[in-house]
Amino acid sequence: MKIVLLGYMASGKSTIGKQLAKKLYLNFIDLDDYIEEKEKMSISTIFKEKGEIYFRRIEHIYLKEILNSDEKLVLSLGGGTPCYANNMDFINTTNAISVYLKTTIKTLVERLLKEKSKRPLVASLDNEKITEFVAKHLFERGYFYEQANFTLPIDNKTINKIVTEIRILLH
């Protein structure tokens, strides 16, 4: 079994993925961490030095590598992963189960403001501009996110509650 968690940045994919993997006795892979390990540089450095097109190409290659492996795992994607290189089509044609962790703009903005410095896409934005940025991005990406096997609204839920709800979806 492969479980793929997708959603916007700060929707909790990595946090929830780690807990879900622990409960299901599966390995956990964060795609961004995997890319950084393979490329021996941070995502922001890859973007700066090699550009987004290069990043999206290798992101697709590593996604395929992980999903084509025989390993049972929980995989959290980067926020943009489903939107490029026909990645959602690929995910949906594998034996993976995809879950969209759906979060409201309000919740995402609250979370992003707390960790702004760790989020290169919003780090340089004025706080007032972040809501507009998230709303526009979410609108553009929603089409891809909605192609997941399951959509799980997660606002105002504990990590344990979300993990439990995902486990229920899987049965």
Rank of each mutant, 00 (worst) to 15 (best):
65 E>T: 11
65 E>R: 09
67 L>H: 05
68 N>Y: 12
68 N>P: 08
71 E>T: 12
72 K>G: 14
73 L>P: 08
76 S>Q: 07
76 S>M: 10
77 L>D: 05
77 L>P: 06
79 G>Q: 05
80 G>P: 02
81 T>I: 03
82 P>D: 06
83 C>N: 05
86 N>M: 14
87 N>P: 05
89 D>W: 10
90 F>C: 04
90 F>N: 08
91 I>C: 07
92 N>W: 10
93 T>D: 15
93 T>V: 11
94 T>D: 06
95 N>C: 11
98 S>V: 10
99 V>Y: 06
101 L>T: 02
103 T>S: 10
103 T>D: 03
104 T>R: 03
105 I>L: 10
106 K>F: 10
108 L>R: 00
109 V>L: 02
109 V>Y: 00
110 E>F: 03
112 L>H: 02
114 K>N: 12
114 K>E: 11
115 E>W: 12
116 K>C: 01
116 K>S: 01
117 S>R: 14
117 S>L: 15
118 K>Y: 11
119 R>S: 01
119 R>D: 00
120 P>N: 03
120 P>A: 06
121 L>D: 00
121 L>A: 01
123 A>P: 04
124 S>D: 15
125 L>K: 05
125 L>Q: 02
127 N>K: 13
127 N>Q: 12
129 K>C: 11
129 K>N: 13
129 K>G: 08
132 E>Q: 09
132 E>D: 13
133 F>R: 00
134 V>T: 01
134 V>F: 00
136 K>Y: 09
136 K>R: 12
136 K>C: 06
136 K>T: 08
137 H>L: 13
138 L>E: 05
138 L>R: 02
138 L>V: 05
139 F>R: 12
140 E>H: 08
141 R>M: 00
142 G>N: 13
142 G>T: 06
143 Y>W: 14
143 Y>N: 13
145 Y>M: 03
145 Y>H: 04
146 E>T: 13
146 E>F: 11
147 Q>G: 09
147 Q>P: 10
149 N>E: 13
150 F>I: 05
151 T>L: 09
153 P>V: 13
154 I>F: 07
158 T>M: 07
158 T>A: 08
159 I>H: 06
159 I>L: 08
159 I>V: 12
159 I>Y: 08
161 K>F: 14
162 I>C: 08
162 I>R: 04
